[in-house]
C-alpha cells in the first residue's frame, strides 16, 4: 500500500488497485468545506447561549443579504429598504401568532404570501422608477411603515412591539432549544445560498447580470426586462420576509422600532457591500463579520453606536470591493457586477 501526492490529487495504491482522490486545489473556494465548518461551529459554542444567539443573528443577516444581493443585480437598482419586507414578515407572523395562536410553521406560508402580495404591489417601481428615485422610494417605504405602527398602535403596539409570539421551537432544555434554532437559521441560510447560487449560474443569472450592466442594451437584445425585474423583485421580497418571520418567532416579540429604522437597513446594506456587491458567498462573510464586530464593540459602551458605522465606512473606503474583493481582485474571469446608479439613456 502506497500513498502518493500528485499535483491535484492523492493517489492510493493498494496492491493492484489505484484509487484517486481529487483535491479541490483552491480549497478555500470549496463551499462544502465552508458549510461543514458552519455546521460544526454551533456545537463548539454549545455552552454559550449568547454566542449561539449571535450566530443565529448572523445567519439571518446573511439570509436577508443573500437575496438582497441577487435583487440588486437582478433589478439593476439599489434597494435601500430591505427592512420593509422584514417588517412585513415579522408583523404578519406576530399578529397571526398572537391573535389566532398559530405556530411558526403555520404562519410561514401566510408570511410568504403576504410578502408576495406586497412585492407584486411594489414591483412596478423597478420598471417605473429610475436610478436614485427607486432608492429614495424604497428608503421611505419602511419609514412610512414605522409611522403606521405608531399611528395604529392598537394593532402594531408601536414603541413596545408585539409580544407573546409562539416560539420557533421548544425542546424543553434551553441550550438544546437554542442549538436547534441556530441550526434552523443555518439551514435557512444554506437553502437560500443554494437557491440563489443555482439561479445566478443559470440563464436567469445571466439576465440579471445583463440588466445590471445595461438595461437598454439588454432590451435591445430581446430581453423582456420589465418581466424579469419584477419576477426577481417579488421572489427576493418573499425570501427577505422570511427573515422577519424568523426574528418574530425566535425572540417571541416583534417591534417596528427594532427592524424598521435606518440603522437596521445600514447593517444589511453594509453586509452586502462589505461582503462584495452581487457576491452571495461574500454576503455570508459580511454577515458574520458585521454581527461579530457589533458584538465585540458593545464592550465599549454607548460609544459603539458611533464607532461601529465609522469602522464600516472606513472599510468601504479602504476595501471598495469588500472583504471578498481582497481575494477576487485578481480573479479576472468571473462576473463581478458593479453597482451603478444611472438614468435611462439611449
Amino acid at each position: 500500500m502506497r500513498l502518493e501526492h500528485k499535483r491535484s490529487r492523492l493517489v492510493f495504491h493498494v496492491k493492484n488497485l489505484k484509487l484517486e482522490w481529487a483535491i479541490e486545489p483552491r480549497y478555500w473556494r470549496n463551499p462544502l468545506i465552508a458549510v461543514a465548518g458552519l455546521f460544526l461551529l454551533p456545537l463548539l459554542i454549545y455552552s454559550r447561549p449568547d454566542y449561539m444567539t449571535l450566530l443565529t443573528t448572523a445567519n439571518i443577516y446573511a439570509a436577508i443579504a443573500i437575496p438582497l444581493s441577487w435583487q440588486m443585480a437582478g433589478t439593476g437598482r439599489l434597494n435601500f429598504g430591505p427592512q420593509f419586507f422584514v417588517g412585513i414578515g415579522g408583523f404578519t407572523a406576530a399578529l397571526l401568532s398572537i391573535h389566532w395562536g398559530w405556530g411558526p410553521w403555520q404562519t410561514l406560508g401566510i408570511v410568504i404570501l403576504t410578502a408576495a402580495c406586497f412585492g407584486i404591489l411594489i414591483s412596478p417601481l423597478t420598471v417605473l422608477a429610475q436610478g436614485l428615485y427607486f432608492s429614495l422610494i424604497t428608503l421611505v417605504l419602511p419609514l412610512i411603515f414605522l409611522e403606521i405602527t405608531f399611528v395604529f398602535a392598537d394593532v402594531f403596539k408601536g414603541e413596545a412591539g408585539l409580544s407573546g409570539v409562539i416560539n420557533l421551537i421548544n425542546l424543553g432544555k434551553i441550550r438544546i432549544t437554542f442549538l436547534a434554532a441556530c441550526y434552523i437559521s443555518l439551514v435557512l441560510m444554506i437553502i437560500y445560498l443554494f437557491i440563489v447560487d443555482k439561479i445566478m449560474r443559470s440563464r436567469i443569472g445571466l439576465y440579471a447580470a445583463a440588466i445590471n450592466d445595461d438595461e437598454v442594451v439588454a432590451e435591445t437584445c430581446g430581453l423582456k426586462i420589465g418581466r424579469w425585474k419584477m419576477i426577481c423583485f417579488v421572489i427576493t421580497s418573499m425570501m427577505i420576509a422570511v427573515g422577519g418571520w424568523f426574528f418574530a418567532h425566535y425572540y417571541g416579540t416583534f417591534a417596528g422600532t427594532t427592524y424598521l429604522p435606518l440603522n437596521f437597513m445600514i447593517k444589511i446594506l453594509l453586509i452586502v457591500l462589505i461582503g462584495g456587491r452581487g457576491e452571495i458567498y461574500g454576503s455570508i462573510v459580511g454577515a458574520y463579520f458585521v454581527a461579530f464586530l457589533e458584538q465585540a464593540l458593545t464592550a465599549l459602551g454607548p460609544v459603539h453606536h458611533i464607532i461601529f458605522p465609522l469602522i464600516l465606512l472606513a472599510m468601504l473606503f479602504v476595501l471598495p470591493e469588500g472583504l471578498y474583493g481582497i481575494y477576487r481582485r485578481h480573479k479576472y474571469r468571473e462576473y463581478y457586477p458593479t453597482m451603478r446608479v444611472r438614468k435611462r439613456s439611449i
Binding site: 440563464r203 445571466l206 439576465y207 447580470a209 445583463a210 445590471n212 450592466d213 445595461d214 437598454v216 442594451v217 439588454a218 435591445t220 437584445c221 430581446g222 430581453l223 474571469r333 462576473y335 463581478y336 457586477p337 458593479t338
Partner: peptide
C-alpha cells in the same frame, strides 16, 4: 437587431456571456 454608435457592451460580462445574452434573449 442593431449596434450602437458608441459601442455598448455589458462591461462586466465576458465576451462570451455578452453574446450569450443575445442568443438566449433573441428569437
Amino acid at each position: 437587431s442593431r449596434t450602437f454608435q458608441i459601442p455598448r457592451p455589458f462591461p462586466d460580462l465576458t465576451a462570451l456571456a455578452n453574446v450569450g445574452v443575445g442568443v438566449l434573449c433573441g428569437k
